[in-house]
Design a protein around this nucleic acid. Structure first.
Length: 231
DNA sequence: GCGACAG
DNA sequence: ATCTTGTCGC
């Protein structure tokens, strides 16, 4: 386990944070296909909080994309750097996520975030932001549609429908389990939407949520527990 | 103006 | 995100 350090110049107000998003948005790369689904490594990142004690814990879990077996993992614990504000989630989660990624031994490969990328009020969600800061290929897989609209996808696993901001497709509602509520996939950095969905399907052989986020979720909760038990 | 709103 | 036991079902 390592310690979270908040990057210098990290915004302190919502206005500053929105300005940062507007300034970085142009650096997102959307025209690279990204890694081949089912090959190389896939890393899940997630964060857990104890707002009472102002503590944050992040986890990064690396899986072999073909076997979905855990190859490496790391955690980071520190102080919360920003409150939760819809549209500004990245400022709350990224410092801890960066620390966990830095503590990883090898290359993370594709990074799967718990939240959105392009599907964002200013088209620069958590996955986009993390991608730009690290240069890594990233995608966002969220559990809720946020403010966006969609038609319910077909019942079979693999069915999808556009996730819409008005008439603009910002992501996809993707059915990962037959007849179960879809997940909401959007592009982060250096991956196309088709491939982001293919990766998501490859990561959900059994459950609605990607194996990456399931693993990262349980690990960061454990890390938070251990960091919170005493002190 | 008010409410909704990824995690 | 988080508060939270047992319970229904494969």
């Amino acid at each position: 386990m390592t310690t979270v350090s908040v990057p210098a110049g990290w915004p302190a107000t919502e206005e500053e944070a929105r300005a940062v998003q507007d300034g970085l948005r142009a650096r997102v790369v959307l025209d690279e296909p990204g890694p081949e689904p089912g090959t190389g490594r896939v890393t899940g990142v997630d964060v857990a909080y104890d707002d009472e004690r102002d503590v944050v814990a992040a986890a990064a879990v690396v899986l072999d994309a073909a076997s979905l077996e855990v190859v490496a993992e790391a955690t980071a614990v520190g102080r919360v750097a920003f409150p939760y504000v819809p549209g500004l989630l990245a400022f709350r989660e990224i410092p801890a996520v960066l620390a966990a990624l830095d503590a990883l031994p090898g290359d993370p490969g594709l990074v799967v975030c718990d939240g959105y990328g392009l599907a964002h009020p200013r088209r620069f969600g958590l996955a986009s932001h993390l991608g730009v800061l690290t240069g890594l290929a990233t995608i966002g897989v969220a559990k809720n549609p946020f403010t966006f609209t969609y038609d319910d996808p077909g019942v079979p696993r693999g069915s999808s429908s556009p996730l819409l901001a008005g008439s603009e497709e910002v992501g996809r509602a993707l059915r990962t389990r037959e007849g179960v509520k879809p997940v909401f996939v959007s592009v982060g950095h250096r991956v196309t939407l088709d491939r982001a969905c293919a990766h998501t399907l490859a990561l959900t052989p059994e459950f609605r949520l990607p194996e990456t986020t399931r693993r990262a979720d349980s690990l960061c909760r454990r890390a938070l527990q251990e960091a919170t038990i005493r002190h």
